[in-house]
C-alpha cells in the first residue's frame, strides 16, 4: 500500500475480517497522493503531504464557515453595527438579540416541535426507506426506485392544497402527524436513494455465506447488510433530519399555533414595518445548535458502536 501501515496499525480488525468500516478507510488517506514506493523518501513525503492536507482541510472549512461566522458575529451586534459597511470586528457585543430570541417568543416550544417532527419523520423514513432500498438493490425492483423518486420530484406547491383538504378531513391539521407525514415524503426518497447504492456496493458473498450458515433472509438483512451500511445510514439520516429541520413550506401550511417549527418562528423577526436583523441572526444561530450537537453525538456514538461491532462481526 502506498503510504504506510497506519490503517493496519490502528484497525487490525479490518484486515482480519475484511469488513469495510466507516469513518476510516482501509487504505491510507494519501494512497492517491503519494508517488508510490520510493524507499527512504516515503516517510518525509507522508509527513509533508499530511501537513498540506491538513492545511487544506482547515482552509476549506474556514471558507465555508465565513458567512456563518458573519452571522454569528452579527447575532451579538446591535442593528447599527450589523448594517454598517465598516470593520466587521469593531462592535460592542450585546446579548440582547439572544434575550429577544428566548424572551419574546416561546422558542422552547418551537424547538421541541422541530425536534419531534424531525426525529419522528427521520425515524419513520428509515423504517420504511431502508427495507425499500434493500429490496431495490438486492431484488432489482427498479420501478420502486422511480416511484419513490417521484415523491421527491413533485414540486412542493403541488401538495399544499390537496394535503390541506385531506388532513383537515381526517382532522390532523395542526398536529405533529400532519408535519411528520409531510416531511417523510421529503426524507423517505432521499434515504432510500442514498441507501440503494450502498446496499449495491456491499459484497453479496457475505450475505450468501450467512444464508448458507442458516440465517434467514431477515437475519441476513439485519445482521449483515444493515451494520455494513451504517456509514450511509448515518449520512442519509443526518441529511434527512436537516431537510425536515429546515422545511418551511409544508410546516407553514400544516402547522397550528402549538406546532409551529423553528423555521416558521424565525419569521417573527421580520415584520410588516421592520426587520430585526440581530434577532434573525441570533435565531439562525440558535437553530443550528441542536443539529450540530446531534450530529456530533451520532458520529461519536457510531464510531464507538462500529469498533465494537466490527470485532464481533
Amino acid at each position: 500500500m502506498g503510504g504506510t501501515g497506519m490503517s493496519q496499525a490502528t484497525r487490525p480488525e479490518n484486515r482480519a475480517t475484511e469488513l469495510p468500516t466507516p469513518d476510516t478507510t482501509n487504505r491510507p488517506a494519501d494512497s492517491r497522493l503519494s508517488t508510490g514506493r520510493k524507499a527512504g523518501a516515503t516517510r518525509w513525503d507522508y509527513v509533508l503531504l499530511q501537513g498540506l492536507r491538513y492545511v487544506a482541510i482547515v482552509l476549506i472549512t474556514i471558507i465555508f464557515l465565513l458567512p456563518f461566522l458573519w452571522m454569528t458575529l452579527s447575532s451579538f451586534k446591535t442593528q447599527i453595527d450589523i448594517t454598517t459597511s465598516k470593520n466587521v470586528f469593531q462592535f460592542t457585543p450585546t446579548t440582547e438579540n439572544y434575550q429577544n430570541v428566548f424572551g419574546q417568543y416561546n422558542y422552547l416550544l418551537y424547538l421541541v416541535n422541530s425536534l419531534v417532527v424531525a426525529v419522528g419523520s427521520t425515524f419513520l423514513s428509515l423504517v420504511l426507506g431502508l427495507p425499500a432500498a434493500y429490496a431495490i438493490a438486492r431484488y432489482r425492483v427498479g420501478w420502486l426506485g422511480v416511484v419513490l423518486l417521484t415523491a421527491r420530484i413533485v414540486p412542493g406547491i403541488t401538495f399544499l392544497i390537496p394535503w390541506y383538504i385531506i388532513f383537515s378531513r381526517i382532522g390532523i391539521i395542526g398536529s405533529y402527524w400532519a408535519l411528520i407525514l409531510s416531511h417523510m415524503l421529503v426524507g423517505l426518497p432521499f434515504i432510500a436513494w442514498i441507501m440503494i447504492s450502498f446496499f449495491e456496493s456491499l459484497p453479496v458473498d457475505l450475505e450468501e455465506a450467512a444464508r448458507v450458515d442458516g440465517a434467514t433472509a431477515f437475519g441476513a438483512f439485519f445482521r449483515i447488510s444493515l451494520p455494513l451500511a451504517v456509514p450511509g445510514i448515518i449520512t442519509a439520516s443526518i441529511m434527512s433530519f436537516i431537510f425536515s429541520w429546515n422545511n418551511f413550506m409544508f410546516s407553514l401550511v400544516l402547522s397550528g399555533d402549538n406546532t409551529k417549527t423553528l423555521p416558521i418562528a424565525i419569521f417573527n423577526f421580520i415584520s410588516y414595518s421592520s426587520v430585526d436583523w440581530g434577532g434573525l441572526m441570533a435565531a439562525a444561530v440558535v437553530i443550528t445548535l441542536p443539529v450540530l450537537l446531534l450530529t456530533l453525538m451520532v458520529q461519536r456514538y457510531v464510531v464507538a458502536g462500529l469498533t465494537s461491532g466490527a470485532t464481533k462481526g
Binding site: Q99, F102, G103, Y107, L108
Partner: peptide, 8 residues
C-alpha cells in the same frame, strides 16, 4: 438557552 426559554 433552554433555561432562559423556560424562565420566560
Amino acid at each position: 438557552g433552554l433555561v432562559a426559554a423556560c424562565g420566560d
